[in-house]
Design a protein around this nucleic acid. Structure first.
Length: 853
RNA sequence: GCCCGAGUGGCGGAAUGGUAGACGCAGCGGAUUCAAAAUCCGCCACCGCAAGGUAUGUCGGUUCGAGUCCGACCUCGGGUACCA
């Protein structure tokens, strides 16, 4: 062992050793339990960032730990390679999305390799490989046959200047990002997965996901949004032909007597009928359809409504007629696209009624209160009892939940409506009017209609000869690709030019990793052995969409015979990690515009920061690392300066993994110093005379056992920061210990092993130097001797009225009455009690004593 | 707007309802050195001379005991169905 810690030397050496031994190649071994650990695969942007390092290091810690616990581990990596950035790059800088993407993949892989991750690279693939997306097309056809896919009209963001569909992130303040034109909502016929048919199952099965974070299950449950409500039809007065009834859905049927208007979405069929007849309504509807399609944009936009002149009869009092408004905040996708407004008990309806001068009749008041004009809507929780004054029930105190159940029963008895269960979850629109995605393998034939492509013709490959000089989808203007013969009748037909949402690609890659080169989407034997994913790790930003779509897709794959039934929930355990953040450095140019600076351009001082030429720099508190603010730290610089082990150790230390971590240069420097200290400690112990003895054998053995126990427990519970804190403490203990040589060596070798999931390279060097057999990466995980973990005395703090005043040291199993006696006799206790009588004394064995005076 | 989180020393953070601040960074003092770097040893929440008091975003509650449980609020972050 050389005297200096030289990461660049040992890291390349051990990486070659692992490669030669094939340590990380996943092998299905029936004699061993299997463990599948997966990190959410990256989008190939071209550069890895610290967030990637953190994500993959976490997965690597788990993979290496499980391997040393005797599992046959699958730890693969791939690329989420379709998506908009590749097309944007082609438009901005020329070049082709495919070349750009594969170039980025090569660059990123070259940056990931030096991290020493225990990845089985033989299973690598990119979702833009025709071998991958061809299998995805095959599954699409199976799902089409099973009725899991269908077409219907849905709204998109339409840029009327560029004549193209925009993604939500391309709509900024209601305007197109390039053209600046006001965006409109426009309907197109698009492909959908029937995810809403599985809403009940997707909701109920959340209960079984006991190793998922509670918050993720809650977010998914709210997103699926099961509700019980009343569906009924208003009889209309003065509506166009065919609209003599207006179906509405409400989750608060108990407030029906407080209805003061009915409202329909601008996309409701009735609105469309009126639009065709009445130019004033057409103008209003056009205005109401302005802006983006996001729920956020719809819910935060100014509430606008227009009286259609149509009236509806109140179902409980046909003499009462309510006006029908078209209102921009009503979603066509939820319920029936029509509502009744109860302004007294819904804040949005209240604002609407106030704006348009509609009455605001109360249905209930707080218990014991009198009816009075309202300044805002009264909206207590449905579980709270209130006094009904004008309800379906009258002059009774009951909760909203009780009242709405009665209201549903009444409607059913009277026959004007029925209780129904609805879900907020909508079907998954997968059509994208873009080039760089998986082509939807169907053909539109004038005679046969929509015809699936024949499976033997798959993959339907993207054509390479396309240009991005005009807005819109290049597939639309590619005649030789688009114009084909109908697979059914052979007549002239056209390919579907929409491609699939990239969420489709990422909804089954975990299954493909089990047989990445197969000529079918999956292979039963491989899927049976490796599925499910035992530990999935990724960002909290994927809590809803990606994870919900993957859960749906696993079900759909099961129903089309591509996954076993027990894989309908594909992820056994989920961990969501936080972001890596950094300070932002800003100066201002002579025109007052902000200028951002990379961390390496900035010199930190005690007072603040400057550029190299002395210009003072403003420091903005930490935020997610982003290229535009330049607060990015390139992992490659860290690895070049300190080595991969330092980068890995640092991203795992300090912050708990589910929280954001602040990157600081000082922290990386400190980590490197620590690893150097470990290195020289190892070197010192290695040269101790074999016959050295010391008084600390028992203490060091106990400390070693405690370290094994603590680090193991911390890794098992994803508390990597605590594992590292324990390793710091254990290192200090060894450094100060005076024990005999074999005990010192044993402690040092154990330290190296406990470090190995985090810092595998230095761990191999320690292992080899302290006489470990073979590779540390293949050595079994150490076990703590339980006998060394028990202490026979315990220190108990003594509180008086909840404040700590003294402490005593007692035998571990001393009976409580004895402990009480000792505590009350303690001189500080006597002093603080000052003769006051003791009312009560609480002894929590092994924990604390509280004297109440 | 709606859904979900998070807020603890100068900083990152630790703490089965039971001694708040483990471990690390920064800082301070010392040893070593001609000197410095590196290394090693020690100190380190705040107020107070001390006794002691005050402290986990804010306000209130439950409890012998609250960072932890409950209620209201504030700030920041994630998601909001075409960013991935």
């Amino acid at each position: 062992m050389s005297s200096r810690y030289e990461p660049s030397v040992i890291e390349t050496k051990w990486q070659s050793a692992w490669d030669e031994a094939g340590v990380f190649t996943a092998k299905a071994d029936p004699a061993k339990p299997k463990y599948y650990v997966l990190e959410m695969f990256p989008y190939p942007s071209g550069r890895i960032h610290m967030g990637h390092v953190r994500n993959y290091t976490m997965g690597d810690v788990v993979a290496r730990y499980k391997a040393s616990c005797g599992f046959s581990v699958l730890h693969p990596m791939g690329w989420d390679a379709f998506g908009m950035p590749a097309e944007n790059a082609a438009m901005e800088r020329g070049g082709h999305p495919r070349d750009w993407t594969y170039g980025n993949i090569a660059d990123m892989k070259a940056q990931m390799k030096p991290l020493g991750l225990s990845i089985d690279w033989s299973r690598e693939f990119a979702t833009c490989d025709p071998e991958y997306y061809g299998q995805q097309q095959a599954m699409f056809l199976d799902m089409l046959e099973k009725g899991l896919v269908y077409r219907k009209a849905a709204v998109v963001n339409w840029d009327p200047v560029d004549m193209t569909v925009l993604a939500n992130e391309q709509v900024i303040d209601g305007k197109g990002w390039r053209s600046g034109a006001a965006v409109e909502r426009r309907e197109l016929t698009q492909w959908f997965f029937r995810i809403s048919d599985m809403a009940g199952d997707l909701l109920d099965s959340l209960d079984g996901l006991t190793h998922w974070p509670e918050k993720v299950r809650l977010m998914q449950a709210n997103w699926i949004g099961k509700s019980r409500g009343l569906q009924f039809a208003f009889e209309t007065v003065g509506a166009p032909e065919g609209f003599d009834r207006l179906e509405v859905y409400t989750t608060r049927p108990d407030t029906l007597m407080g209805a003061s208007f009915a409202g329909i979405s601008p996309d409701h069929p009735l609105a469309k009928a009126l639009e065709a007849q009445d130019p004033k309504i057409a103008a209003f509807v056009a205005e109401a359809r302005r802006g983006g399609t996001t729920e956020e944009a719809l819910q935060t936009a100014e509430k606008l409504g227009m009286d259609t002149g149509i009236r509806v009869k109140h179902p409980l009092d046909p003499a009462r007629e309510l006006p029908v408004y078209i209102a921009n905040f009503i979603l066509m996708d939820y319920g029936t696209g029509a509502i009744f407004g109860c302004p007294a008990h819904d804040q949005r309806d209240f604002e609407f009624a106030s704006k348009y001068g509609l009455p605001i009749p109360s249905v209930f008041v707080a218990e014991g209160a009198q009816e009075a004009p309202l300044a805002e809507a009264f909206t207590p929780a449905k579980s709270e009892p209130v006094q009904y004054i004008r309800g379906v029930v009258t002059n009774r105190v009951m909760t909203g939940d009780e009242a709405l159940a009665e209201a549903i029963k009444l409607a059913e008895d009277k026959g004007f409506g029925q209780g129904v269960t609805k879900f907020r979850l909508r079907d998954w629109g997968l059509s994208r009017q873009r080039y760089w995605g998986c082509p939807i393998p169907v053909v539109h034939c004038p005679a046969c209609g929509v015809v699936p492509e024949k499976k033997e013709n798959l993959p339907v490959e993207l054509p390479y000869d396309v240009s991005f000089d005009k807005p819109g989808n290049p597939l639309d203007r590619h005649p030789s690709w688009r114009d084909v013969a109908c697979p059914n009748c052979g007549a002239a037909a056209k390919r579907e030019t929409d491609t699939m949402d990239t969420f489709v690609d990422s909804s089954w890659y975990y299954a493909r990793f089990t047989s990445p080169r197969a000529q079918t989407p999956t292979v039963a034997a491989d899927a049976d052995y490796w599925m499910n994913v035992d530990q999935y790790i990724g960002g909290i930003e994927h809590a809803i969409l990606h994870l919900l779509y993957s859960r749906f897709f696993a079900r759909a794959m099961n129903e089309t015979g591509h996954l076993p039934a027990r894989s309908r929930e594909p992820f056994e355990a989920l961990f969501t990690q936080g972001m890596v953040t950094h300070e932002i450095y800003k100066t201002t140019d002579d025109k007052g515009r902000p200028v951002w600076h990379l961390p390496e351009e900035v010199i930190r001082t005690d007072e603040g920061a400057t550029l190299k030429d002395g210009t003072p720099v403003e420091i903005i508190p930490s935020a997610k690392m982003s290229k535009s603010k330049k607060n990015v730290v390139d992992p490659m610089n860290i690895i070049a300066a300190y080595g991969a082990d330092t980068a890995r150790w640092f991203v795992m230390s300090d912050s708990p993994p589910e929280r954001d971590v602040e990157w600081t240069a000082a922290g990386a420097e400190a980590t490197h110093k620590h690893l150097s200290r470990v290195w020289s400690l190892c070197s010192r112990i290695g040269t101790m005379p074999a016959d050295h003895t010391g008084p600390g054998d028992t203490d060091l053995r106990k400390a070693t056992a405690r370290a094994v126990e603590e680090v193991t427990r911390s890794i098992e519970s994803f508390a990597f920061n605590k594992a590292i804190a324990g390793l710091y403490a254990f290192t200090n203990t060894i450094a100060k210990a005076d024990a005999s040589t074999p005990v010192m060596k044993e402690a040092m070798r154990t330290l190296g092993q406990l470090m190995s999931p985090m810092t595998p390279h230095i761990a191999e060097s320690i292992w080899a130097y302290q006489g470990g057999q073979g590779l540390c990466a293949r050595a079994p995980w150490p076990k703590a001797d339980p006998a060394l973990l028990v202490d026979d005395t315990v220190t108990l703090p003594i509180q008086i009225n909840g404040k700590r005043r003294a402490e005593i040291s007692v035998a571990k199993d001393l009976p409580a009455p004895e402990v009480e006696k000792l505590a009350l006799a303690h001189e500080d206790v006597v002093k603080f009690l000052a003769g006051n009588p003791v009312k009560k004394i609480i002894v929590v064995p092994g924990r604390i004593i509280n004297v109440v005076a």
